[in-house]
Simulated assay, not measured.
Amino acid sequence: MTDPRSSTLTPGLRHVFSYVVPESKTVPSLYPEAEQFQAMPKVFATGFMVGLMEWTCIQLLAPHLAAGEGSLGTHIDVSHLAATPPGLTVTVEAELTQVDGRRVWFDVSARDDRDLIGAGRHERAIVGWSKFEARVAEKLKTVLDG
């Protein structure tokens, strides 16, 4: 059987997504229970930038997946290059660079209203949600019954 993704999921696909940074996506909000994060400036957190990059890649993939499929981040290698205060817009661009079966790779970059704030590479795995959720449930059962 031919994989239906093979005809539409090809290197060179691009997706752009913009997001206005709220105060709730700044460093002190990353782990509110962490005293060290609470002492840091209210600028866009690296963890939230990574999530925004993943979100953009998920959006790029969505029209190319079968019903019941999704994707999971498996590797990310990005630099966070500049601080972004709340209220500025961050625009992420993702380009699909490689497809190998269920593994896909992207070049990602993020800019705010003034600077390039992040750039790098991201890998995702395409999965069937029911199979994935069954494995997670089995893992939990094994640990709890352990």
Rank of each mutant, 00 (worst) to 15 (best):
residue 33 E to H: 14
residue 8 T to R: 07
residue 15 H to I: 01
residue 3 D to Y: 05
residue 117 I to E: 04
residue 55 W to K: 11
residue 93 E to M: 04
residue 140 L to H: 09
residue 131 K to I: 09
residue 99 V to H: 07
residue 66 A to H: 12
residue 31 Y to W: 12
residue 102 R to D: 14
residue 111 R to Y: 05
residue 62 A to M: 13
residue 48 F to S: 03
residue 26 T to S: 09
residue 89 T to S: 07
residue 145 D to E: 12
residue 118 G to V: 01
residue 56 T to D: 04
residue 1 M to A: 13
residue 144 L to P: 00
residue 53 M to S: 02
residue 116 L to E: 13
residue 55 W to D: 12
residue 2 T to I: 12
residue 14 R to Y: 03
residue 62 A to R: 15
residue 66 A to V: 04
residue 134 A to W: 03
residue 56 T to I: 03
residue 58 I to Q: 14
residue 36 Q to Y: 10
residue 33 E to K: 08
residue 129 W to L: 13
residue 132 F to Y: 14
residue 145 D to F: 04
residue 26 T to G: 00
residue 16 V to W: 04
residue 37 F to G: 03
residue 104 V to C: 03
residue 66 A to C: 11
residue 71 S to G: 04
residue 3 D to N: 15
residue 21 V to K: 00
residue 101 G to Y: 05
residue 98 Q to K: 14
residue 6 S to K: 07
residue 123 E to Y: 04
residue 90 V to L: 06
residue 49 M to K: 08
residue 109 S to I: 05
residue 9 L to S: 01
residue 97 T to F: 02
residue 97 T to G: 04
residue 3 D to A: 13
residue 134 A to S: 11
residue 43 V to W: 07
residue 132 F to D: 01
residue 22 P to Q: 13
residue 109 S to Y: 02
residue 78 V to L: 07
residue 2 T to S: 13
residue 51 G to T: 05
residue 86 P to H: 07
residue 73 G to M: 09
residue 112 D to Q: 06
residue 131 K to V: 12
residue 47 G to H: 01
residue 112 D to M: 10
residue 141 K to D: 12
residue 133 E to N: 14
residue 99 V to G: 07
residue 37 F to P: 01
residue 100 D to M: 06
residue 80 H to K: 03
residue 111 R to N: 08
residue 134 A to Y: 02
